[in-house]
Design a protein around this nucleic acid. Structure first.
Length: 734
DNA sequence: CGGGGTAGGTTTTTT
DNA sequence: ACCTACCCCG
């Protein structure tokens, strides 16, 4: 077979990776070095040059988007629709295994995936029934604890008991939560992975079947794997599987949610002997951008080591702008973005990246004013919106009348007179007799347990759902969706909500119906979403609803409908994997980026630096870094020094932007160098100081001298205070 | 039962 | 500043 089209157009390193001898391979792929390309070509090479069946390939990614892209590009390269090839997210693939082998996994056939929102509700209920004080142990924290344990492969019984109250309380919650999930056939995200790992450990035959089937495993973004994902992979690979892991330790930015960069190191040991290949040639950015990125990331210790280079020229310098405040920063960004567009650039070539979502607001207003079209990524995902989840809950009830999660959600939505009191009675009855909430209602009505208005309300609800289910039998998926949106009264209820919200919710519900229509279309002509669908049990008409509900649980429906070119705004985290000709990295201030929450633990600071590295390496041609001396955050003004990351960049590729025309600055002494300007008493502007009574704060300004010198300090807890320098007795912290 | 007021809490996000 | 979750009252 002619395989030149697979190896042509690759550089030496890429070709080395694609054609690496069959065996375990680690590809350290720097930003913009063509890592997806390598993965895709490797798969094509295995198939066409090595005669491996697409049936024996398993490719794992983290996001549905990445999985879809990989499948699509591989199919394009192979010029076939490789439906037998397993390409998906860790969760998607593990879920598919659980559906196929639910019995061996100890799950009911109708097990239901719950999202983090459902999970939190459930945990709250569990805590209430355990009479655990939610003030003392916030439910969010408990959810975090449980998920972290599961990510580490630990069941409640595996959690060390310990003698501190925190551990005891959380272990108790975990155990009880586990019970509730088991009873209701509920599977949270972490559970999908944990359970499918156990599925293999407990079923040797099954494991050996899959080990035999998947002779070649490919893993994308390997630095983002957590303990359970790594274990899962290791078990599946066994002694015979060949793994190609592609990743970049310098782009590991998800340590805070359990990802372990160490897995890259571990891989070399557990999968020895391995072939390591580095991809360092960058095809994305100018040399100046890469010089800056290399220098910055050099401040981190324990790297595998890697230096990006390019054949391209130096390009523009990296421009640094010191804004007076966040509004000035936004104004600057918008002005420069407008210039880009005026000079013939497209808005969608421009990205504004920030550390936290709260920063988008000012920028948004400025863009609105300048009439630059923009799109904000992040925020609530489509299928996570309350109104959508309500409609989906009705759809689930039609499919499975016994789903407690769905029942709880819509039993009184729109309001129909079944309140907390009544619900509590239903719950208690269901628990006592060990039946579903639905069943408890039905039986309760027969037994005459409810009176008058309440009884009527319940009867009406039961009848509504039963009737709709009856109708749904002859309906296509999108018609069922339509029914659940309209006939339930949801759309009327939601559109009546105040102001813009009502309109938005109405539109979202309509969008759901078209998503359902789209989904049915995809079943007939599998396209992108096929990546997450289970191809082994496709279109039987009756299962379309089931398939839709599953799909929706694992795919947040992020596919935004493109409406013309728009400037992109997103957090640094969501920018990973993307590239833009013009990038603005805003809010480079100590406390914001690096974020103050990451200041204490040393590992976290390095992760912040990697985040900055990710941000810088998104830029292809031009990069702007901005920071503001004053920023309004959570309603109060904060005063921060420029980020240490700015100082870590090589001066020779930076250029400070000075604005034409003076900007009025209310106080003297607040210029761009304020962090270096001396104040008396060995303190300087922006210095962190500690006061006996007010705690820690930052020096903002000073006036006067000698005995009358006064200093303004913005305290974290006490706010801004003017103090007499002579009496304040401030301790310098830096 | 349901709407409205208030207290609390605000890094990052996928599945 | 703003959103959300919960509590209290009509």
């Amino acid at each position: 077979m002619d395989i030149t089209h697979i190896l042509d157009g690759l550089n030496d390193r890429q070709r080395e990776a694609v054609g690496a001898p069959i065996g375990n391979t680690l590809v350290i792929a720097g930003a913009g070095s063509g890592k997806t390309r390598v993965l895709v070509h490797r798969m094509a090479w295995l198939v066409e040059a090595q005669g491996v069946s697409t049936h024996g390939l398993l490719a794992v990614t983290f996001t549905n988007k990445a999985a879809a892209e990989m499948r699509q590009r591989t199919e394009a390269l192979l010029n076939t629709s490789a439906r037998s090839m397993w390409v998906g997210t860790f969760h998607g693939i593990a879920h598919r295994l659980l559906r196929m082998h639910y019995k061996e996994a100890g799950l009911p056939q109708a097990f239901q995936i719950i999202d983090s929102d459902d999970q939190l509700r459930l945990i709250k209920r569990v805590m209430r029934s355990l009479a655990i004080d939610e003030q003392k142990w916030p439910a969010r924290q408990a959810a975090w604890f449980i998920n972290a344990a599961k990510d580490e492969g630990k069941r409640a019984r595996d959690v060390p008991s310990g003698d501190d109250l925190f551990q005891i309380a959380h272990k108790k919650i975990y155990r009880s939560y586990e019970e509730v999930c088991d009873q209701g056939g509920l599977v949270d995200f972490a559970e999908i992975l944990l359970r499918s790992h156990e599925l293999w450990l407990n079923n040797a035959d099954l494991l050996s079947h899959y080990q035999h089937r998947f002779g070649h495993l490919l893993v994308d973004e390997f630095q983002d794997t957590n303990t359970i994902q790594y274990a899962w992979l290791r078990v599946l690979a066994g002694k015979t599987g060949r793994v190609m892991a592609v990743g970049d330790d310098d782009q590991s930015i998800y340590g805070w949610r359990g990802a372990r960069v160490e897995n890259i190191h571990q891989f070399s040991r557990d999968f020895a002997p391995i072939n390591t290949i580095r991809l360092e040639q960058n095809y994305r950015s100018t040399a100046n951008i890469l010089i800056a990125a290399n220098k910055l990331i050099g401040f981190n210790a324990d790297r595998l080591g890697k230096e990006l280079w390019t054949e391209d020229g130096h390009g523009e310098p990296i421009r640094v702008y010191s804004a007076y405040n966040d509004l000035d920063e936004a104004r600057f960004v918008v002005e420069r973005a407008a210039n880009w567009i005026d000079q013939g650039g497209s808005p969608d070539e421009v990205a504004v990246l920030y550390r936290s979502n709260a920063q988008s607001r000012v920028l948004e207003e400025a863009l609105l004013q300048a009439r630059i079209p923009y799109r904000i990524y992040g925020g609530l995902r489509f299928f996570e919106r309350a109104e959508i989840k309500n409609a989906l809950a009705y759809m689930r009830l039609l499919h499975d009348r016994h789903s407690a999660v769905a029942f709880e959600r819509v039993v009184n939505l729109p309001p129909r007179g079944i309140g907390d009191k009544t619900l509590e009675i239903i719950r208690a009855e269901a628990r006592r007799r060990n039946v579903s909430l639905w069943q408890a209602c039905k039986d309760g009505i027969v037994a005459g347990a409810f009176k008058g208005r309440v009884a009527n309300a319940i009867i009406n609800f039961l009848k509504l759902v039963d009737d709709l289910a009856e109708i749904a039998l002859d309906q296509a998926l999108h018609e069922i969706a339509e029914t659940c949106v309209s006939a339930t009264g949801l759309i009327d209820y939601h559109s009546k909500e105040s102001g813009e919200r009502g309109l938005a919710r109405k539109e979202n519900l309509e969008e759901l119906v078209s998503a359902a229509r789209q989904f049915t279309g995809d079943l007939v002509f599998p396209t992108m979403s096929a990546a997450t669908q289970s191809q082994d049990r496709l279109p039987e008409a009756g299962s379309a609803l089931e398939a839709f509900l599953d799909q929706v649980a694992l795919d947040s429906g992020d596919t935004q409908t493109e409406t013309g070119p728009a400037l992109q705004m997103m957090t640094l985290h969501s920018a990973k994997g993307l590239e833009f000709p013009l990038v603005f990295l805003v809010g480079l201030e100590e406390g914001l980026f690096p974020h103050r929450m990451s200041a204490d633990e040393p590992g976290r600071m390095e992760e912040e630096r990697r985040l900055c590295y990710v941000g810088i390496t998104r830029a292809m041609q031009e990069l702007y870094l901005t920071y503001a001396e004053t920023r309004r955050l959570h309603g109060t003004d904060t005063y921060n020094r420029p980020s240490r990351f700015v100082g870590e960049l090589p001066a020779e590729v930076l250029e400070e932007v000075r604005m034409r025309g003076a900007i009025s600055r209310p106080m003297g002494g607040m210029n761009s160098r304020f962090f270096e300007e001396p104040v008396e008493g060995g303190l300087h502007m922006g210095q962190r100081v500690k006061h006996a009574k007010f705690g820690e704060g930052i020096v903002m300004q000073c006036e006067g001298g000698g005995d009358r010198a006064r200093i303004q300090v913005n305290f974290e807890n006490a706010g801004a205070k003017w103090l007499m320098l002579g009496y304040a007795n401030l301790a310098a912290l830096d």
